[in-house]
Design a protein around this nucleic acid. Structure first.
Lengths: 195, 195
DNA sequence: TTCAAGTGATACACACCTGTCGCACTTAGC
DNA sequence: GCTAAGTGCGACAGGTGTGTATCACTTGAA
């Protein structure tokens, strides 16, 4: 599962470089979605040639990035233990984990946004997981919005905005943390009763 | 003011083509921020050469688009009559006008988002106007958020998302209209008491 | 009607990104 | 230490977007 699919095992440093390229790509592409592979390699401390050796094409790199993003979302959904905790707690934990994983929110937005129908953005499993989270929030009366798409869009959009907030933003300080501000904002936007 | 700044007056059809290019650019760039000038010209029913005649460079076109966007926001802020009506009414009217003006929300997001500090995104006047709207909402108890940046970001992000919603989205139908859904979502996200 | 303004079409130069070599060098792994 | 795997460097070809210029044609406006 760890990037090695079928091909014979990579050397340790090579596999490490693959991860560095992915991390650099997430960061650079978040700032500029049209950034060249040269800039991505530079950010990873590698040459463009090496980027090409690890990823056959730009599209292959983007696909790998998408897979990684989906896996992180799935992992976060899994760790949030939906079945045992209260919906609001689950939601808060989910956001906490996503922030810890340093998920590239801008890139996530790009992916989710560009897939008008559901082309290549977030996987159906992730969408289903998020939908379940919101369904439980709705059942518990924490939100009133009924559309799964609307809930997901608002969530992703506000994740992105919360992440862009400077550390000393008054609302962020007041809320206590980014996950808490996000939970407040999302539940409020989706028709939840405050407090 | 009308695009003619200093240079001698353009012929009527030329000025009309300038407007068509701007409209086409807003639409095409909303779908693909990296679209070529050829595609923009094609969408406007013109040739790439003509696009270059009206706008010296790609950057000049983007700047003109930014100016237009800022002017439309200013116009909407002006028409919302902040001084005479209740804050919530002002806010609703503002969003209604923005939707009527078919403001390119995606492009607006790009501009606002990319200007980390305040480089070339929305003008200080627009930012100040929005800040005033939110200040009045706060004074009236419709929201509790205190950060001007946070309020503006949430607003712009949700404008974008509301605009992407299909006409038959359940939450949109329930709210009655896009502006109404937007007002509900923004006030809720910013800590307002529902209803 | 007449003429300048504007456009379409085409060509060109320039720059950038992508993808693929080949070769010398370094390094991980046995 | 040896060997193969991996990397850096340089070069190349192909594609695309940009910006400019020229020429014939069309059209707005006096």
């Amino acid at each position: 599962m760890s990037t090695s699919t079928g091909a014979r095992r990579l050397r340790a440093d090579a596999e490490n470089n693959t991860a560095r390229i992915l991390a650099a790509a997430a960061e650079v592409l978040a700032a500029d979605p049209a950034a060249s592979l040269e800039r991505i390699g530079e950010a990873a401390g590698l040459t463009r040639a090496t980027v090409h050796r690890r990823f056959a094409s730009r599209q292959a790199l983007l696909d790998a990035l998408t897979d990684q993003l989906n896996q992180r979302y799935l992992s976060a959904l899994d760790q949030s233990r939906m079945d045992t905790a209260a919906p609001l707690v689950v939601f808060l934990r989910l956001t906490e984990i996503l922030f810890e994983l340093k998920v590239s929110h801008r890139f996530a937005m790009e992916l989710m946004g560009q897939s008008d129908g559901c082309r290549d953005g977030l996987s159906p499993e992730v969408a289903a997981g998020l939908e379940q989270v919101f369904a439980r929030l709705r059942a518990a009366g924490d939100i009133t919005a009924t559309g799964a798409d609307w809930c997901r869009q608002v969530f992703l959009a506000l994740v992105h905005e919360v992440n862009r907030l400077p550390d000393d933003a008054p609302d962020l300080v007041a809320a206590g943390s980014r996950p808490q501000l996000l939970v407040q904002a999302v539940t409020g936007a989706l028709g939840g009763t405050p407090r």
